[in-house]
Design a protein around this nucleic acid. Structure first.
Lengths: 307, 307
DNA sequence: GACATCCATGTAGTAACGCTACACACTTCG
DNA sequence: CGAAGTGTGTAGCGTTACTACATGGATGTC
């Protein structure tokens, strides 16, 4: 029961293809196939079976892969303890974020992290609709993701979830809107309004449905944009109103866009860090995470001050 | 950070000598030395330092060895999960016991364990005085040990302790003794009696001290024997009285030896199984342990029935 | 239906790695 | 002082896990 081989099985469970595992572990597919064959012989049961031109894990294979994760976590924890002992949070941490969180958290966080010697953080952004957040954990150490309050769709998959902040979703209005003087807004207030929404698949959609249900009237979504800046521009232009995350809106046009809290509907999104459990143990990763949390708290506190 | 190398460090932490580690892992001392050197280079800190003609671990070495244990446990657990999945408690389990526990528990337990196919249990006995129980865990999978109530001297050492039973220590009397008709005995009752004791170092000694303190008078220990049979023979011969574990006494001479509970003193010994935590995870080991527990319960229940 | 494509998996051959055997330096003990 | 114990170097060898290349099967396309 070699650890390296178990690791390969674990990768296979996540990447669903020997070729992919080979690419991710800098090996030839042949090497991976051979090692898995050895593991299978040691295990005494078939771990994979062919399916079309690829292969899938058997129940036994999945069971063993799960155990392999526990081993990987223990090993990563050992490394982390050791790094703590040496006080050495060195290494490369890769991170993906959806755009708004990247804008809100990363500049401040990276400024702090630059002071940690030997720690390199590589960041990218990816549009959330296009990507399955959990799947990204195979490729990146930290995945900044969001979900609506209540359901955390990535609980059961054996991923580590670290909550960073909960961000209210407000209603964005142009300054000359009829509701501009209100200090908050209810679903009944916005009956008949035209909305600038997000493309299908974005979770914002669900909140609009909730507004519909609470108010008891249908909602008109005129445009669907993924980019928040575009949405804001449309709102400012008076072409509709929109849901806008409170801490993330641009502020490019101060005074032209007003944010009003939405009452009567659970209009919040939870911003979390998603990680494979073994990677979550790394000291370097934990260091980045810690900075992200304090940065999130800072942003939140700063906004509370303004309001 | 190879697991094999961590394992060697862990062994070194327990066996305190490269030669011993080499012997235990079926290698040459040179091989062990080389591997530890590599680990040290990877770790970036000296893990060992010379002391006389041997060597000892540095603080860093001990810290890393501790983590190595966690990894070993996770790996053993993974194997166990896998064996459970295959329902395959196969393998060799080695066990040491002190004589009385061996006599009391092992025959019945081994009869049950014989029915598990593929499971081999190798048992030995060792006199408890001569051997440090925790040290034996390096050599055997399961160490049957005992300690007096209250203090478990092997708590902090990172060993797994599974309690099997608590056995009262009674006072053994010859049938014609002046206290023979009593149903229990207090320290005050036995003032002036001659005792057949155990050699220095046995924990029974401590109970005699407690009796002394409670009764407020000195105890006369005439003879000191390690073997319970010899002690019983002396008691039967009227040469003194003795502390006798209730479930373990011979019963060779029925009616000639009477056991009376001792009140006013914590006269109990706890019989436990001692194991290295990683070995405790093995399915085969856990199977043996389970049988030992039920056997202990059986013995205890049977004695309760007689009384 | 032929063909290109994408898989996994065999078959050599090679490079790296960990081991043994042996020699050596050092400390402890009789 | 020598004998016996310790840990550690060096050379050589065997095993192992990799790459490179070839093969067979399944899929999808023109």
């Amino acid at each position: 029961m070699d650890v390296q081989r178990l690791e390969l099985l674990r990768e296979l469970a996540e990447r669903h293809s020997i070729t992919e595992v080979a690419r991710a572990t800098h090996r030839t597919p042949s090497a991976v196939s051979q090692q898995l064959k050895v593991l299978e012989r040691e295990a005494g049961l078939p771990l994979t079976e062919r399916s079309g031109r690829g292969l899938i894990l058997t129940d036994a294979g999945r069971a063993l892969a799960r155990s392999a994760t526990d081993v990987a976590v223990a090993l990563a924890r050992a490394r982390a303890v050791w790094d703590e002992f040496r006080n050495d949070a060195t290494g490369v941490v890769s991170l993906v974020t959806f755009p708004t969180a990247g804008e809100m958290l990363l500049p401040g966080a990276l400024k702090h992290l630059a002071e940690v010697p030997g720690l390199a953080v590589n960041c990218t952004d990816k549009d959330p609709e296009l990507s399955d957040f959990p799947a990204l954990t195979a490729e990146y150490d930290i995945v900044l993701a969001y979900s609506l309050r209540g359901q955390l769709p990535w609980g059961g998959r054996g991923l580590t979830v670290v909550p960073l902040m909960t961000e209210p979703l407000d209603v964005g209005l142009p300054a000359d809107h009829r509701l501009a003087s209100r200090s908050w807004i209810t679903p009944a207030d916005v009956i008949g309004e035209t909305w600038i929404g997000a493309p299908a698949g974005y979770p914002f959609e669900r909140i609009l449905h909730q507004i519909e249900q609470t108010a008891g009237s249908q909602i008109t979504v005129a445009q669907q944009f993924a980019d928040l800046r575009v949405i804001e521009a449309f709102v400012v232009a008076g072409l509709g109103i929109a849901l806008v995350p409170r801490y993330t809106w641009g502020g490019d046009q101060p005074g032209k866009l007003l944010l009003k809290p939405l009452r009567g509907v659970d209009a919040e999104r939870q911003i979390v860090a998603l990680m494979r459990p073994d990677r979550a143990e790394r000291l370097a990763v934990r260091t980045v995470l810690e900075v992200l949390r304090t940065e999130a708290a800072r942003v939140q506190a700063q906004h509370a001050l303004i309001t």
